[in-house]
């Protein structure tokens, strides 16, 4: 069986489901658990991370022949930290409230191993177009995953979605869901679901192969 060539679309799509950074690679857990207590925080964190991912991926890819092997990690971190600082300023310019809600976690995007991981494993070995597609896919997968965790936590923990009340008055908030332990619980339930779906997918693929042979 011939190996199918990897199309640009594949580079984008793999981050959404097959190699989803949160649910499959389990990378970037610190922001995924800490800033997913409401849907809007999760979205903002996801978008900020996506921006840094794309810009860092692009820069690393462009500079990949310029960066010597021995000094690559320090160069990547320097590039990533620069874009994180820019995002920090940009968010402050957009809304101080959002900046306060995201708190210390914006600065912590620097140490999100997802970004360093993609720079090292992908962007440094591929040309800029592919690096951007990969980063966009990973960023979308990361944002989506955070968003799904955030939805569960916000609905159960505060009875709202995007700050809009979903229930009549007297809703009993599940305090645990806005606490850190709620992040672990929501994350675990999604992981369970994703792994179960993946298992079914693999079984279906296995059956299809059997039929084909």
């Amino acid at each position: 069986m011939a190996i199918k060539p990897v199309t640009p679309t594949d580079e984008f799509v793999k981050g959404l489901w097959r190699d989803n950074p949160v649910f499959v690679q389990v990378l970037g857990m610190c922001p995924a658990l800490a800033v997913s207590n409401t849907a809007i925080n999760a979205l903002a964190m996801g978008l900020a991370t996506t921006f840094v991912l794309v810009m860092a991926g692009l820069s690393v890819s462009l500079l990949r022949h310029f960066i010597p092997r021995e000094a690559r990690i320090v160069s990547y971190i320097c590039i990533i930290a620069t874009f994180v600082t820019c995002v920090d300023y940009a968010i402050m310019a957009i809304s101080i409230e959002l900046h306060r809600a995201l708190g210390a976690f914006i600065a912590l995007i620097v140490v999100n191993c997802l970004i360093l991981g993609r720079s090292e494993a992908f962007a440094s070995k591929h040309h800029p177009g592919r690096a951007i597609l990969d980063a966009l896919g990973m960023g979308a997968g990361f944002t989506g995953a955070l968003f799904f965790i955030g939805i569960v936590r916000e609905i159960l923990g505060s009875g709202t979605l995007f700050g809009v009340g979903l229930f009549p008055d007297g809703f009993q908030a599940w305090t645990i869901m806005v606490l850190p332990s709620g992040g672990f619980l929501a994350m675990a339930v999604w992981l369970l679901l994703v792994n179960w779906l993946k298992k079914r997918e693999a079984e279906a693929a296995g059956r299809a192969e059997e039929v084909a042979s």
Binding site: L63, F66, I67, P68, E70, A71, V74, S75, C78, I79, A81, T82
Partner: peptide, 12 residues
């Protein structure tokens, strides 16, 4: 190495 690190630092 100096070239790359200083260069990247300056750009950043």
């Amino acid at each position: 190495m100096y070239r790359s690190i200083v260069g990247i630092g300056a750009l950043c």
